[in-house]
Design a protein around this nucleic acid. Structure first.
Length: 479
RNA sequence: CGAGGCGUGGCGCAGUUUGGUAGCGCACCUGGUUUGGGACCAGGGGGCCGCAGGUUCGAAUCCUGUCGCCUCGACCA
């Protein structure tokens, strides 16, 4: 084993040995979350929350750019309101938490803690939308929701989680469809540009679509262990909710019309995706664009005259353009190297007596662990270039991993064999029948991830039943 | 909710089979020597053994109950 491949952090379980353990090790050691005393709920610690704040900042900017406004809805939903739309309540009823008492008094009507806020938005929209002049309504809210999950894992599935939910109302079906796809594209762009996570865009099958939706679109990403993760969804509700909630407007034609609605969401689960797409055995690896610390300055032989001062000077200069931290604690340099690699800091800047003598600093990349000796005269430029390069390298690596773990199956034996032994995405044709989805699930535990927009004609018949195929589908085991 | 595993200083564990003064490593504190890949020496502090009952002269250990956490399935962002 080459020296630079040596496992530097003994405390982290190797990902090839036990991926699930590796994941929880990272989450704990990098201090992203702490387990709380409440089942299935996590404490998001400062470093983890800082990642979420950066995600919020970038996503929110994109929402504003596309004309959306932020609002805040109540966190309680009266039972009668939740039950207005039949499919919706059936989908969520098994996992809602109920408030039955106010103080010591039993409530006349139970309130559920929102698992999602469609019903609240609809109730509100019915009040404020009267004319075609009131449309479109492009609202978004950042909030927490609660779903009574049976099994939980930090970030990937918790009983309470943070998210953003966009809810829009439009005059026509065409506008609603356009909005649904526009926001899916915003999500995909965000994942690739900011998180360096490549995604497959497509449509969910009826079996997998959102409760109450006419169509659900999704972006699917692939984790390092070959499991898929639904990373964001965008739903077109058609006028189903509008009819259930009576959201009507008077059009230019002086006739009453129902609105057409959409909703779309992304959650703290994205942090789980970042961990599982980019991380390695040394720990977390954060894309520079959302890393809370983009560069850490580690002084070497900091007791020597002038070292700390120089390091502080670098920090002061760089901090106007980058999120930079100086660690002048009395831990050894080696300890700091490992610590910040574990925390996924993209770039390390070493400065010691030798460097000061030569008017240079040493930059070390988290992705390659390569060292670069750069002049202090153009440090800012060098740091900017390296961060950009690391961002790109991370996307490239993630893309390569996904390509390597994406297969094609034409026969059912081939399909089962690939899911079982290789994992990852398996592209295969499908007849459109839910029976085949169910059978595949039963036989392999894989589900249809999406019907990608970019269709390919792999064969003419369904991989499962052999009947004429309608769609090419990405299949895989999912988180 | 099904199957498995685990609750002992902050973290990771041993001790439980066969009841008898609560231990180890890391972390922490003090002093010194160190400092370019998780430094070393010396000294020190910290534990109602998840919780509640029971058996016993005596319980981390045995019995009953209960709560919580983790992993894997089914459900789901």
């Amino acid at each position: 084993m080459a020296k630079d491949e040596k496992k530097l952090v003994e405390e982290i379980t190797s990902m090839n040995e036990d991926f699930a353990k590796w994941y929880t090790d990272i989450v704990k050691k990098a201090k992203l979350v702490d387990y709380s005393g409440i089942r299935g709920c996590m404490v998001i610690q400062p470093y983890g929350y800082a990642i979420w704040e950066n995600i919020q900042k970038e996503l929110d900017r994109r929402f504003k750019e596309t004309g959306h406004e932020n609002v805040y809805m109540p966190m309680f939903i009266p039972e009668s309101l939740l039950q207005r739309e039949k499919d919706h309540v059936e989908g969520f009823a098994p996992e809602v938490a109920w408030v039955t008492h106010g103080g010591t008094e039993k409530l006349e009507e139970r309130l559920c803690v929102r698992p999602t806020s469609e019903t609240l938005f609809c109730d509100h929209y019915a009040n404020i939308i009267h004319s075609y002049r009131d449309l479109p309504k492009l609202y978004n809210q950042w909030c927490n929701v609660v779903r009574w999950e049976k099994t939980t894992r930090p970030f990937l599935r918790t009983m309470e989680f943070l998210w953003q939910e966009g809810h829009t109302a439009h005059a026509t079906a065409e506008e609603a469809e356009a909005e649904t796809l526009r926001m899916l594209n915003v999500y995909a762009d965000f994942c690739e540009k900011e998180l360096a996570i490549p995604v497959v865009k497509g449509r969910k099958t009826d079996k997998e679509k959102f409760a109450g939706a006419k169509a659900t679109y999704t972006i699917e990403s692939l984790m390092h262990d070959g499991k898929a993760l639904q990373s964001g969804t965008s739903h077109n509700f058609g006028d189903g909710f509008a009819k259930a909630f009576g959201i009507q407007y008077t059009g230019e034609d002086n006739e009453l019309h129902y609105v057409h609605q959409t909703s779309w969401g992304m959650t703290t689960r994205l942090i789980g995706a970042i961990i599982m797409v980019h991380g390695d055995d040394a720990g977390l690896k954060l894309p520079p664009r959302i890393a809370p610390i983009q560069a850490v300055i580690v002084p070497i032989a900091q007791h020597k005259e002038g070292v700390i001062e120089k390091a502080e000077q670098l920090r002061a200069t760089l901090s106007s353009k980058f999120r930079v931290k100086l660690d002048a604690s009395d831990k050894s340099p080696g300890w700091k190297f490992s610590e910040y690699e574990m925390k996924g800091v993209p770039l390390r800047i070493e400065i010691g007596p030798k460097d000061i003598e030569n008017n240079q600093a040493v930059l070390v990349s988290r992705t390659t662990r390569e060292k670069f000796f750069v002049s202090l005269d153009n440090l800012e430029e060098e740091v900017a270039n390296h961060l950009e390069k690391i961002q790109q390298e991370m996307l490239d690596a993630a893309l390569q991993n996904r390509e390597e773990k994406t297969s094609v199956a034409v026969s059912y034996d081939e399909f089962k064999e690939t899911i079982e032994n290789k994992g990852g995405f398996v592209k295969a044709m499908w007849c459109g029948d839910v029976e085949c989805e169910n059978k595949i699930k039963e036989d392999t535990s894989a589900t249809s991830r999406c019907m990608p927009f970019e269709q390919e004609e792999l064969s003419e018949s369904c991989v499962c039943c052999g009947k004429p195929a309608k769609k090419m589908v990405y299949w895989g085991k999912a988180y």
